Amino acid sequence: MKRFKTALPLLAAGAMLAACSGAGGGGGGATEDAAASYPERPIDYVVAFDAGGESDITARLQQQPLQEALGTEVSISYQPGGGGALAWSELTRTEGDGYTIMGHNLPHIILQPMMREDAGYETEDLKQVYIFQSTPNILAVRADSEYETLDDFIAAAKENPGAISVGGSGDFSANHVGTLLLNDEAGIETTYTPFSGTGAAVPALLGGHVDALMTYTPMIGQLGDQIRVLGIATEEPMEGLEDHPTFVDQGIELVDGAYRGVAVPPETPDAIVDKLAETIAGINEDPEFVEQFKEQAFVVENMGPEEATEFTAERKEVYQDLFERLGLL
């Protein structure tokens, strides 16, 4: 299982070419010439959510470096709806010429087709370019909560099954899955309460309408001393957040959250996919860009087309096993 990392791996050129080769899913017999002349006109970078969220923040940070590296304008547009499903289903019907690229999120692109008959796409329909960022889950309570530690929280949940409410952003999202994984790993039962987004979930916690939130690492900086973090779902402490305990350090093997990347239509030539992947890999090595990610409490990820596809398949198996054991499938 891939685990959230806390340091940026520096990729040698040869390693990146190996990671980006054989992006999979056809490519229409494209040659190196397809990448050599690409791009020749502006690129539309589609965000599958409203402006202002973490996907949008990431795209905005990437916009200028992408324009400089590719030598063309990169515009950002928004196609919200269905938790991203509207845009991702549309991507599968878009011309695969490299001029429409789209942000994609895990576990969303796995769970939507798994749990909804009307998702409009299958996970494998989206041709992966790169997974470049992640935001680990955190379990947070109000600063004045009676739960001072994760052990306190787990003990209370065991004593009163289902009585503790955990809020989060959306159904079958990273927050929802994180709550299910915590329940499974700790042998407890909590009640998950979905909200339309983090913006709605946070007031519910601070107002005492839910006992805890399963949310993302950026909330640590944004909410400051209003919350107490009981656990971060990373394998190792995150740089800058070392004062907050991980679940792993407390004996709970919970390492999960949201992963963000870029996908393209399924018929996009492999040569173009590789060029985009190499470009993003180079941006991810820029110290100024890395620092911007760090300021947002984002984790830099470096998964080219092949590794991103394999990682998605691995996570699909994890979620399918979990949901089957919980009787949700």
Results as ranks from 00 to 15, higher is better:
Arg3Trp: 03
Ala13Leu: 12
Ser21Asp: 15
Ala23Ser: 13
Ser37Trp: 08
Pro39Glu: 12
Arg41Met: 09
Arg41Trp: 00
Ile43Val: 15
Val47Gly: 11
Phe49Thr: 15
Gly52Ile: 14
Ser55Tyr: 05
Asp56Met: 09
Gln64Ser: 15
Leu66Arg: 14
Glu68Tyr: 09
Ala69Cys: 07
Gly82Asp: 02
Gly84Thr: 02
Ala85Tyr: 00
Leu86Val: 15
Gly96Leu: 08
Gly96Trp: 05
Gly96Gln: 07
Asp97Val: 06
Asp97Tyr: 07
Asp97Glu: 04
Gly98Ser: 03
Gly98Lys: 02
Gln112Thr: 04
Glu117Thr: 07
Gln128Cys: 03
Phe132Leu: 13
Ile138Met: 11
Arg142Pro: 12
Asp151Trp: 02
Ala155Phe: 07
Gly170Phe: 05
Asp171Glu: 12
His176Trp: 04
Gly178Asn: 00
Leu181Cys: 00
Thr191Trp: 02
Pro194Met: 08
Gly199Pro: 01
Val202Glu: 03
Leu206Met: 12
Gly207Lys: 01
Ala212Asp: 07
Thr215Gly: 08
Leu223Trp: 05
Leu223Ser: 07
Gly224Asp: 09
Val229Ser: 03
Val229Cys: 03
Pro237Ser: 11
Gly240Cys: 03
Ala258Leu: 11
Ala263Pro: 03
Val264Asp: 00
Pro265Ala: 06
Pro266Arg: 03
Pro269Asn: 05
Ala271Leu: 00
Ile272Thr: 05
Glu278Ser: 10
Gly282Arg: 12
Gly282Thr: 13
Glu291Val: 07
Ala297His: 15
Gly304Met: 13
Gly304Asn: 13
Thr312Cys: 01
Arg315Tyr: 02
Leu322Ile: 12
Glu324Phe: 13
Leu328Lys: 08
